[in-house]
């Protein structure tokens, strides 16, 4: 579903993402775990066609990003790390805008929106986005993505900024979608989320993937909690030893 080979992004001389390979299967919840500044957002931006890679290739749903960017965007959903919504649009106007861009069926969407609003306790669709709090905008953004029920979901730190209940609902929803065949690619720096939700995780540090396995495999390998593994993997010292032993 998601395949990247030798994916690289340079900003000037700085290498933000350094030749990573990714392979995520259908129905999988894939966690992209790494400390701040590791290159998670940059990777997700390349995978979703916002940033053009300096090198490497991307294939989503069997289509090359270079040749089919619009077709890919039609079938995926992206929740960026920052929910930036046009300040002067009301909540429902933003949703209508997304519906018109994707040329979706209005009545069908109305049902979905109502369901999602109930789930996330969103009752402020007639408020201007500029008057919403960060968390409120984030839930609106999530609804705008989830209502389309895309085949592949990219979520950049999706639970950051959500209250505990909404975060829990999101987690459950994503796992339910995955069971129904949706592929989920999510970044996070929170171990607990990766551990609880993800089928498989890749740990990225300084633009490079330093470990990739299922959570149970990782735990088995190191006989430690995921937190200890994560911290030791991303610590500046003795990384090499751990990586070599993997």
């Amino acid at each position: 579903m998601i395949r990247a080979v030798g994916l690289t992004k340079k900003f000037g001389d700085f290498i933000a993402v350094d030749g990573i390979n990714l392979n995520v299967n259908q129905g999988e919840v894939f966690g992209f775990l790494g400390p701040n500044g590791a290159g998670k957002t940059t990777t997700i931006k390349m995978l979703t066609g916002t940033l053009k890679p300096t090198a490497g290739s991307i294939e989503i749903l069997g289509m090359d990003m270079k040749n089919y960017p619009i077709e890919i965007k039609r079938r995926i959903g992206v929740a960026p790390d920052e929910p930036r919504i046009y300040e002067h649009l009301k909540g429902y106007e933003f949703l209508e805008f997304i519906i018109s861009i994707y040329k979706l069926d209005k009545t069908e969407m109305k049902v979905k929106i109502e369901e999602l609003c109930d789930a996330f306790e969103v009752d402020y669709l007639d408020k201007l986005a500029g008057e919403m709090s960060h968390g409120m905008r984030q839930k609106l953004m999530l609804i705008s993505v989830l209502m389309r029920k895309p085949e592949v979901l990219f979520m950049d730190e999706p639970t950051v900024g959500l209250d505990a209940k909404s975060a829990k609902i999101l987690k459950e929803l994503l796992m339910k979608y995955a069971r129904e065949g949706t592929t989920v690619f999510m970044t996070t720096h929170i171990l607990e989320i990766a551990e609880k939700m993800c089928d498989r995780i890749a740990i990225i540090n300084k633009g490079q993937i330093i470990a990739e396995a299922s959570v149970s495999e990782l735990k088995e390998k190191y006989r430690a909690s995921l937190e200890d593994i994560f911290l030791s993997l991303t610590a500046t010292n003795d990384i090499k030893d751990i990586v070599d032993s993997l």
Binding site: T48, G49, T50, I70, K73, R74, V78, P80, R84, I85, Y86, I98, I101, Y102
Partner: peptide, 8 residues
Amino acid sequence: SILLVNQV
């Protein structure tokens, strides 16, 4: 970025 990630 909203426009860039969507189908336009």
